[in-house]
Amino acid sequence: MPNRGDRGGAKTRARIAEVASELFLERGFDDVTIAEVAAAAGVSKVTVFSHFERKEDLLLDRLPDVVDIVRTAVRERTGDSSAVETLRRTALAFAEERHVLSGLNGDIEPMMRTVTASPALIARLRAFAYEIETELAAELATDPKFSGDSTLTAALLVAAYRTVAVETVRRRLDGDDLTDVATAHRQRLNRAFDAVEHGVHRTAASA
């Protein structure tokens, strides 16, 4: 597991990620080695791997946050809000904030281009989608407020969000106006979550 240690360790981790990202964006992910990242950051390869399990995590180090965000949203929802509706609100809040994980951050195009140019990074994103789907299914399965098919619902939610995100990235890389992209992103999110919500209700009713 990565060593997220004390404050000094967190600073080292942030420094390594910053240096690695600069190198990847400048030269391409596949053309930069861990040894080069370590040398540029002034640390050893062992130190790099004590903070990051995979080379891909040096650039995609925000991805693990998604699991915690989703888990917290489901667990801490209040009243009669469904898990799907709660996750919709979370996704829309990301869009409103132009959070980096929404794909709407104003400075994210260079990273998007780096990711789409690397088979290794694309494969890591696909693997992470499966990981979050598994985590979400497990969370829904133990949620007393949820009565649907947890595995199916998790798969539909992840697929729906991924579809919206991919289209948003495509439009960003095509140079479309960011305001228009953000508006379309929110509209597509609502349509995607509507489709999942209605499908889940029909499935539960017919079970």
Results as ranks from 00 to 15, higher is better:
residue 1 M to F: 15
residue 1 M to G: 03
residue 7 R to E: 14
residue 8 G to A: 05
residue 10 A to P: 08
residue 14 A to W: 04
residue 14 A to K: 03
residue 14 A to E: 05
residue 17 A to R: 05
residue 18 E to Y: 02
residue 25 L to H: 14
residue 30 D to M: 04
residue 34 I to H: 10
residue 37 V to P: 01
residue 49 F to T: 00
residue 55 K to N: 03
residue 62 R to W: 05
residue 64 P to I: 07
residue 65 D to E: 13
residue 73 A to C: 07
residue 73 A to G: 11
residue 74 V to I: 06
residue 79 G to F: 11
residue 80 D to S: 14
residue 80 D to N: 13
residue 81 S to E: 09
residue 81 S to F: 09
residue 84 V to T: 07
residue 85 E to W: 11
residue 88 R to N: 04
residue 89 R to I: 07
residue 89 R to C: 01
residue 91 A to T: 12
residue 94 F to A: 06
residue 96 E to R: 11
residue 96 E to D: 13
residue 98 R to Q: 09
residue 99 H to S: 09
residue 99 H to R: 10
residue 101 L to I: 05
residue 102 S to W: 09
residue 102 S to G: 13
residue 103 G to E: 06
residue 104 L to R: 13
residue 105 N to D: 15
residue 105 N to R: 15
residue 105 N to H: 15
residue 106 G to Y: 12
residue 111 M to E: 14
residue 112 M to A: 12
residue 113 R to P: 06
residue 117 A to C: 04
residue 118 S to V: 06
residue 120 A to D: 03
residue 121 L to R: 09
residue 122 I to P: 14
residue 131 E to Y: 05
residue 131 E to L: 13
residue 132 I to L: 02
residue 135 E to K: 02
residue 138 A to G: 07
residue 139 E to N: 09
residue 143 D to K: 12
residue 144 P to G: 10
residue 144 P to D: 03
residue 145 K to Q: 15
residue 147 S to L: 15
residue 148 G to C: 10
residue 148 G to Y: 02
residue 150 S to A: 07
residue 151 T to A: 11
residue 151 T to V: 04
residue 155 A to W: 10
residue 156 L to M: 15
residue 158 V to K: 00
residue 162 R to D: 12
residue 162 R to H: 12
residue 164 V to N: 04
residue 167 E to T: 08
residue 168 T to W: 08
residue 169 V to T: 10
residue 170 R to G: 12
residue 172 R to C: 14
residue 176 D to E: 14
residue 177 D to M: 12
residue 179 T to R: 13
residue 179 T to I: 12
residue 189 L to P: 01
residue 192 A to N: 01
residue 192 A to S: 01
residue 192 A to W: 01
residue 194 D to M: 08
residue 196 V to L: 03
residue 197 E to D: 14
residue 199 G to M: 11
residue 205 A to Q: 13
residue 205 A to S: 14
